[in-house]
Design a protein around this nucleic acid. Sequence first.
DNA 1: TCATCCAGTTAACAACTGTTCTCTGGAATT
DNA 2: AATTCCAGAGAACAGTTGTTAACTGGATGA
Lengths: 208, 208
Amino acid sequence: MSHTLGIRQAQKQKTRQAFLDAALALLEEQSLSSLGLREVTRAVGVAPTAFYRHFRSTADLGVALVDEALGSLHPMVRTTVSATGDSEERITRAIELIARHVDAYPAHVRFIARERHGGVQPVREAIRAQLHRFAEEVKSELANDPEAAGWSDDDLLMLAHLYVDQMLITASLFLEALEAPAQERERVTQLAARQLRLISIGRSHWLD
Amino acid sequence: MSHTLGIRQAQKQKTRQAFLDAALALLEEQSLSSLGLREVTRAVGVAPTAFYRHFRSTADLGVALVDEALGSLHPMVRTTVSATGDSEERITRAIELIARHVDAYPAHVRFIARERHGGVQPVREAIRAQLHRFAEEVKSELANDPEAAGWSDDDLLMLAHLYVDQMLITASLFLEALEAPAQERERVTQLAARQLRLISIGRSHWLD
DNA sequence: TCATCCAGTTAACAACTGTTCTCTGGAATT
DNA sequence: AATTCCAGAGAACAGTTGTTAACTGGATGA
């Protein structure tokens, strides 16, 4: 059941979202550890002290951004991994999905790539936790595949992490190629496809 | 022929190295884009203006750190990839080498992982260039392997990039496990080994 | 020996930072 | 209608930042 928010709560959420949007925009050219509280409030058009009504610190804001960037992505991952069709079809479909996501939410992708190993510990931790969730989900989907017969749990999780990392590497490549000519984007697509193909081959001969 | 530096040049290089060391230490808990010039000079124990005798900006210092962290690593990579022995031996040797390097130079590894996608464009560019050099070197070593017969140049470079990225992922995992119990470090070792094993299997069936 | 060089110093600049306390005005509750 | 609540404003705090200009004193080269 969804309760309609009062005028007050609604306005507060709107301001909060404005903080997240402004921060994400500012973070295209710097890291979270150098993002100033006043800088964000200035971009939102609000008094510096208003910040504290929504976040304890910029690190806190960063954790919220992690949730926004990755939280809603879980269903997408599950359906992509478990998609039907032969191996080659699944590869091209997965890569196209990544490319579209980078096109649609470049700032989100940049934020995650940047802060995954960034200078703010709670944010690193939040990203690590989300990526681990992805890996577990990928693993449980892989387990449904007939090809996974005979695989140990550890090996399945190993493969899942390989896929998740590969997904991030590919997303980062597409991000770098965002403003590049279509030819460069195509090169990235082909590279990522062949890397996934090689992993797929290794996977099918794993138990030899 | 190595010319002995004058007292003056020697002292200058010493101070410069002190800047690099101090910056690297400060960067364990923040990103380069938030590193202040005064912060560094304070840590070195020198006047703020002395900074300009060595670097144009903190971004410039960052580029110098990239060279220090990755520049001397190229011979190591070549010999590791081209090492003799069967596939399994090579995998364990490569991983052990990475683990030792992370133990010996954790701050360097952290810096590269952090700034690879960080907020300072010239530094990102410098890291990208160095990693591309690594990939080219790995590729030229792979080409010497009899297993590479029939491989296209593009496919060799694709595999080389896969190895380089995997190397960075593994280094980053060891970094996170630096202060963890030996059991956790062993888990990382086993995980990395199996991932390399899977890639190796995919490699040997690539031309099927 | 003497003039030149130059790594590092000192002082000062306006601009910026995070955080505190107090206040306000409209929404929410009674 | 009267009261409480609370998102945001305003002002002020001590400290910080990058960059400038003019300097000092020991190494360097003629």
